[in-house]
Design a protein around this nucleic acid. Structure first.
Length: 325
DNA sequence: AAAGCGTGGCC
DNA sequence: TGGCCAAGCTT
């Protein structure tokens, strides 16, 4: 949970998660959809799948690995997580280098190579190994992470409060703000998306995304990009048709939701759609092109399923304003 | 090697 | 507001 996620935010999810899955076997035997639901809103959903896969491996063996290599071989466990578990949990002499440690060391030792690229990484790795105090690696790296989060912050570092300010090279050089060296940033793309809440016989059509890629295995409303010059309501009808084969018309606008991503900033234009031909009996049957599974759900049903955060915001707005439901 | 993968907080 | 960032991993 802590991978690319601020600790305070992960903590809330962690408490709920371990209350529901207190050991490896309970997680190994869990319904994957329940695991995903407990991960809803946290992002990077492959972590949830990897964690359950790791739990199955550990539960199957009956023992937790006791070496760095054994830990690192588990799915979803990379260099940082393996080092952190080895050092903090098992007391082994291994480095745990996260973004905090990278930032602290890049300042204390004035690393002038981009910190996210190979050369900068290698410098940090060497430094971390050289500084590692045998027998106390866990305390040491946890302290470095804490120092980075509380004092040696990305912006407005509290150098006046820093216990190691005297040995900080960047501070002596007056270039703390220039460390770590960042790779050149990519601009955020603004995209407009139409989202279709297709209602038929009082039920809402939802579909499950493919396992790979973004939001793998999560449920969603059909939708997609609004083309240049296209009206959002037309895009909602078109996307629904392309993804399901349904013929629909716009019944009402449901509002606009803005949602941020790392590389995109999305504006969701949401519409309530109804069958184009209201005289057709029963629920229409979809021909799925963008999803692997679908279902007709009540508003209450949606609460038990995992949706991307933007779509969850839409569901919340539907429940808050029951004009149409 | 570099891009894909989420989300919300912060300034 | 918009860009940056977080207890990174996988392909």
């Amino acid at each position: 949970m802590l991978q690319q996620t601020q600790a305070a935010r992960a903590a809330v999810y962690f408490q709920r998660f371990v209350a529901r899955f207190p050991d490896f076997s309970s997680l190994a035997d869990a319904d994957p959809d329940q695991v995903l639901k407990l991960w809803e809103g946290l992002g990077y959903y492959s972590r949830a799948r990897n964690l359950q896969a790791a739990a199955k491996i550990i539960a199957g063996r009956g023992v937790f690995p006791d070496t760095l290599e054994g830990i690192a071989a588990l799915p979803g466990v990379g260099p940082y997580t393996a080092g952190a578990v080895a050092a903090l949990a098992l007391g082994l002499d291994h480095a745990a280098v996260d973004a905090n440690v990278e930032r602290v060391l890049s300042r204390s030792h004035d690393i002038d190579a981009p910190i996210k690229e190979r050369q900068g990484r290698e410098r940090v790795r060497e430094l971390a190994a050289a500084l590692l105090p045998p027998g106390r690696a866990g305390d040491f790296f946890q302290a470095l992470m804490e120092l980075g989060e509380v004092v040696c912050r990305p912006k407005n570092p509290a150098c006046g409060l820093c216990p190691v300010a005297d040995l900080c090279q960047a501070r002596h050089l007056g270039i703390v703000a220039e460390r770590p060296v960042r790779a050149k940033g990519k601009s955020i793309e603004l995209i407009t998306v139409a989202t279709a809440v297709f209602r038929c016989q009082g039920l809402i059509f939802i579909q499950r995304r493919r396992p790979g890629g973004a939001w793998g295995n999560l449920w969603e409303f059909p939708g997609g990009r609004v083309e240049a010059g296209e009206a959002p309501e037309d895009a909602a009808v078109r996307e629904l048709s392309e993804e399901t084969g349904f013929s629909a018309r716009v019944e009402a606008p449901l509002g606009v939701i803005r949602h941020g991503y790392t590389t995109y900033r999305v504006t969701l234009h949401c519409y309530l759609l109804a069958p184009a031909d209201p005289t057709l009996p029963g629920l229409p049957f979809p021909v799925l092109t963008a999803a692997v599974e679908s279902r007709w759900a009540s508003l209450a049903d949606l609460d038990g399923l995992a949706f991307p955060a933007g779509h969850r915001k839409l569901i919340d707005s539907l429940r808050a304003d029951l004009r149409f439901f």
